[in-house]
Design a protein around this nucleic acid. Structure first.
Length: 999
RNA sequence: GCCCGGGUGGCGAAAUUGGUAUACGCACAGCACUUAAAAUGCUGCGGAGCAAUCCAUGCCGGUUCGAGUCCGGCCCCGGGCACCA
């Protein structure tokens, strides 16, 4: 008898499988396909972790099982090879990331191959190779062309340590997900993918996939859909009746935004006059002023809106007329402050300087509006006006430079300042006693009063200095500052103050809220602190109080009255529903029913808001796929031409992070851009987030060698979607959300056939984390790391595989045990020795065959359910029984090792060969079980008296109640308990229980 | 705070629709084999009790002939989100 020696047989079989590439997936559209995928690993220097084989074994069991069931299985492996660790290693040691990454891959591949996993190695992909990232870049261009990739200046998360920006998903509690250092906010121009366009689909389509519920919940949470309304609050200001719109040089009442603005204002009930001005091509200021005075009515309820040169006309008028308001829209500076160096037309037209003192005295509200992209009048002029007039200054991006668009909403916004809020509770509108803007809200500078300016600016500066961590610290007291401005509550008409506070986020909703302190905890806290009015508008129904405000206690009635009173007088918050009070015509109505009526009354719009933000993909790092964009000498963006892909990473790079992309320092990179595109052209220096590379690798596996396309449609049709996807739960909202977005977008671009469906991963399972033997998370510093190499050397790969499957439920966290693993090795030793009992042409007892069939059934069902641990325990039960038999038939042994083979492929292949069974075990069909043999004929059944177990009886499964009763009466124990009492009732569930109820 | 998981022997765990709680494995103990040890095999193994029996699935209560499983309330552990209007 030879001994079981995994060190000898495992390499033997692995070599054979690899040599023949035995598990290659054939592109054969006629076969039933099964795509079984692992989340491909980042090849770290530390090598394989025991957590990796857990998922890999599960998919391997599934793959081998499905093959035996007649499926053509695609089971690939690859490398998520771009990433920071390789670059950090390069900074420390000078070793090129390309070299270190490929060394790590060699090691990972060796380790993975030592586990006997049935991958199709001919499909291996590596995201850091030009052959792969060419297509990552090509896909980026598709996103760009479809308007789903854009560059924008935004407040972004900046990791000081890694010197790069991060996506929202990569910031955990205000710290970098990777290095745990605090993340600060920076205003930077960055590339984004417009994932928000897919928010609704990403949410809805979750319903249809077979994923763990917690993961679905996390994604839903992250997308964060809220149904509510947008409501406009008009700024309270001196009464305004009339607008006079004054056009600029070369303009007319019909030019630019004037007709649109006129109609918008008329719609809002204002009188609008648009004078026709003489000599518009070569304007004379005094002449135009006279024209306005002749054509228009001017009084203290009049607002002048002057576009460009028209602003000068308005100002000259304001020197002598009392006016409500003057708004300058991109009005050029004059000799007043340019020492006579104003533009020639302006200098010629304006013969004497403006009297700012008179203007300030005559006009209640002045406002200066400029366009940041203006090339007619520089935005610096706006700053000068604002200084001299001591007026609020707003810099925006006009629809068309110099506000030449047909519609210019920012002009309307300046004319009728309006704050739009998002709320999910329009029913509480009457209770809105103040408003809060986020400190970064664009309207802040415009509305802030002169008195409050300093305080507001200080507060904004303080907010900017804070890290996200400090700003979102929940224990922190509310802070904020009054802007000096008021708005009108559109329901009640009451004047309410406008504050700014950092508890309102600039990035969610409209960046502004209506505060309802009586019914919102945060607003309540803020109102308390700053002594703002609290008006209760919903009378809670007592039932709701019972469940929300008070845990059930004995002195319930007393407390209930008190709680109700506190809410009514504003001493306590109440966030629930009930009947409206203090709400004018809506008093007495149910809050839920009145919600949309109130919204409608004030001109609010139903609105759905998502928490999800666009995906920031620029990284100021080297080791990633370069973003394939070029800038011309004027700074305009152009896509890199397709024939220039892949846009190769330069090799002459100093990796040290400085906050700029390291590739910017490459000479070759600079030269290449100029050579390909011309003098003064330069490439985008940022690289893409690694998650962009991993968002489509499952598509590449379908057609990994294609040099013409990222993947051919017929190959995608053949294999997609992934039927089973296995990996760690840590990717719940990162990789899995991004990959779903890619899949949907690419399908909408026509790159993925419709037959594939809208979701890339039909079924998903998460392996639970494996802890160290000390029940702690494995870490080098704790010294509790188990190295898979050591386990394979000591016990063999089959033992490692089976132990990891036997440890506990697949999806749960479980500790490694250096003792328990011996039990699995013992099991395999015993399976090995069982071959000594195998004889041809013997018929064993029916019980043995029955147990085999029960085992086939259990293992089959358990594999489908990912209950690998109980599948293994059933095989142990079967083995325990087989060992007790003097001989085992060949057929029983064959079937037994066949169902064991997906779990322990090496030992079973070797046994198959040594026993000279026909063919190869991996090619056997999966055994069917015989339902008749699975059935038990007799059972050991419990007999209960009054629900307490008293004895067991053995009888045929299909016994009648009377037979069972008779059998039970034979039992002395049962007789003893029944003695002297009368039987009230007998409950008999065949095969399960007989319960005799006594009085 | 909100949303998910989970609490069962000394340990990892099982119990699929309410029906013999603790399968399977580890550890431990005894025995056999051996000069001896290892390996292997056999037996025992929730707690209390001589036994009959009683008590045990985080805690309290309920429904039921019968609850680890269902319902209500609470405690603890793990994960996710977190001023999202």
């Amino acid at each position: 008898m030879n001994e079981y020696n995994p060190q000898e047989i495992e390499p033997k079989w692995q070599k054979q499988w690899r040599k023949r590439n035995q598990f290659a997936a054939a592109d054969d559209a006629k076969m039933k396909k099964f795509y079984c995928l692992d989340m491909f690993p980042y090849p770290s220097a530390a090598g394989l972790h025991v957590g990796h084989p857990e998922g890999y074994t599960a998919t391997d069991i599934i793959s081998r099982y499905k093959r035996m069931r007649g499926f053509e299985v695609l089971h690939p492996m690859g490398w998520d090879a771009f990433g920071l660790p390789a670059e950090n290693f390069a900074i420390k040691t000078g070793v090129d990331p390309n070299t270190s990454t490929h060394n790590n891959i060699e090691n990972f591949r060796r380790q993975i191959q030592s586990l006997g996993l049935s991958y199709d190695w001919s499909r291996e992909v590596d995201t850091s190779t030009p052959a792969y990232y060419k297509w990552t870049q090509w896909l980026f261009l598709q996103f760009y062309e479809h308007g789903l990739a854009y560059r924008k200046k935004a407040k972004v998360n900046w990791c000081e340590h890694d010197q790069t920006v991060l996506a929202n998903e990569q910031v955990v509690n205000g710290a970098c997900e990777r290095c745990k250092n605090p993340v600060v906010q920076r205003d930077l121009e960055q590339w984004f993918f417009k994932i928000t366009d897919y928010a609704q689909q990403l949410l809805e389509d979750l319903d249809a996939v077979d994923w763990p519920e917690p993961i679905k919940a996390m994604q839903r949470n992250w997308i964060g859909r809220s149904e509510g309304a947008e409501i406009d609050f008009v700024l309270a200001q001196p009464p305004v009746k009339r607008f006079i719109l004054i056009h600029g040089k070369g303009g007319s009442p019909m030019s630019n935004f004037l007709p649109w603005l006129q109609s918008e204002l008329t719609k809002r009930g204002y009188e609008v006059q648009v004078p026709v001005l003489p000599n518009t091509e070569a304007p004379d200021l005094e002449e135009q002023v006279q024209a306005v005075l002749q054509q228009c009515t001017l009084d203290e309820q009049t607002v002048l809106v002057g576009h460009s040169f028209g602003g000068l006309v308005a100002l000259r008028i304001a020197e002598t007329k009392k006016l409500a308001s003057v708004i300058l829209v991109s009005t050029p500076a004059t000799a007043n402050f340019l020492d006579g160096k104003a533009r020639p037309t302006v200098a010629k037209a304006v013969q004497y300087p403006f009297s700012f003192v008179h203007i300030r005295n005559n006009v209640s509200r002045l406002h200066v509006l400029f366009d940041s992209g203006d090339y007619v009048v520089p935005e610096s002029d706006g700053q000068l006006w604002a200084d001299r007039l001591q007026a609020p200054y707003t810099l925006v991006q006009a629809q068309t430079p110099h506000f030449s668009g047909v519609q210019e909403p920012s002009v309307l916004q300046a004319a009728v300042p309006m704050i739009t809020v998002f709320t999910t509770r329009p029913d509480t509108l009457y209770g809105a006693t103040y408003m809060v803007l986020a400190p970064e809200h664009p309207l802040v500078s415009q509305i802030t009063s002169a008195q409050q300016r300093l305080a507001v600016e200080e507060y904004i500066a303080a907010t900017k200095k804070k890290t996200d961590l400090q700003r979102t610290d929940l224990n922190k007291e509310k802070s904020g500052v009054f802007t000096g401005a008021h708005a009108v509550n559109p329901s009640s008409g009451r004047r309410i103050p406008i504050w700014i506070a950092d508890y309102v986020l600039g990035t969610y909703g409209t960046g502004a809220i209506m505060a309802v302190p009586a019914h919102d905890e945060r607003d309540f806290e803020f109102a308390k602190k700053f002594d703002l009015p609290i008006v209760c508008v919903i009378e809670p129904d007592t039932l709701t109080i019972q469940s929300t405000a008070l845990p059930g206690t004995a002195q319930f009635d007393v407390d209930e009255q008190k709680v109700l009173k506190d809410i009514l007088v504003g001493k306590s918050v109440y966030a629930g529903g009930g009947n409206l009070i203090n709400s004018g015509e809506f008093d007495g109505e149910d809050s839920e029913e009145a919600k949309w009526k109130i919204c409608e009354k004030v001109g609010g719009r139903k609105k759905i808001t998502y928490r999800l933000r666009d995906w920031l993909i620029s990284r100021q790092r080297y080791w990633g796929a370069p973003i394939p964009m070029v800038y011309d000498p004027e700074g305009n963006i152009h896509p890199v031409r397709e024939e220039h892909l892949p846009l190769l990473l330069p090799n002459d790079v100093d990796f040290r992070p400085t906050g700029d992309s390291p590739i910017a320092r490459s000479v070759e990179w600079k030269e290449r851009a100029e050579k390909l595109y011309g003098n003064g052209w330069r490439f985008e220096n940022d690289t893409m987030d690694g998650f962009a590379c991993s968002s489509w690798y499952f598509l590449r596996f379908c057609d990994p060698k294609n040099t013409e396309m990222f993947a051919a449609p017929e190959k995608l049709k053949q294999w997609m979607p992934v039927d089973m996807y296995v990996g760690g739960a840590e990717h719940a909202v990162l990789h899995l959300l991004y990959a779903r977005f890619f899949h949907k977008a690419l399908q909408d671009f026509g790159l993925i056939p419709a037959e594939v469906g809208r979701e890339p991963f039909g079924a998903l399972r998460n392996q639970g984390m494996i802890l160290g033997p000390d029940h702690q998370k494995m870490s080098k510093s704790r010294g509790n790391v188990i190295n898979p190499d050591d386990v394979v050397n000591e016990y063999g790969a089959d033992t490692l595989r089976m132990y990891e499957m036997f440890m506990g439920p697949f999806e749960e966290m479980k500790p490694w045990s250096t003792e328990s693993i011996k039990g699995i090795r013992r099991f395999l030793d015993r399976v090995w020795r069982l071959k000594e009992k195998v004889q041809k042409d013997v018929t064993e007892e029916k019980a043995t065959v029955s147990e085999l069939h029960r085992t086939i059934k259990k293992v089959t069902e358990d594999i489908d359910r990912f209950d690998f641990n109980t599948a293994i325990s059933q095989m142990m039960i079967a083995l325990n029984l087989f060992e007790k038999q003097p001989v085992i038939s060949q057929s029983v042994f064959e079937l037994f090792i066949t169902i064991l083979s997906p779990f322990a492929p090496h030992i079973t292949a070797e046994l198959w060969e040594q026993c000279n069974f026909e063919g190869e075990i991996a090619q056997q069909p999966w055994p069917e079980y015989d339902e008749e043999l699975v059935k038990e004929t007799t059972v050991n059944m419990a007999v209960q008296i009054n629900g307490k177990m008293r004895d067991t009886i053995t009888l045929a499964v299909d016994s009648s109640e009377n037979q069972a009763r008779d059998a039970a009466m034979q039992s002395e124990k049962v007789q003893k308990h029944i003695e002297g009492k009368s039987v009230v009732k007998v409950i008999y569930i065949p095969g399960k229980i007989l319960n005799i109820v006594l009085k």
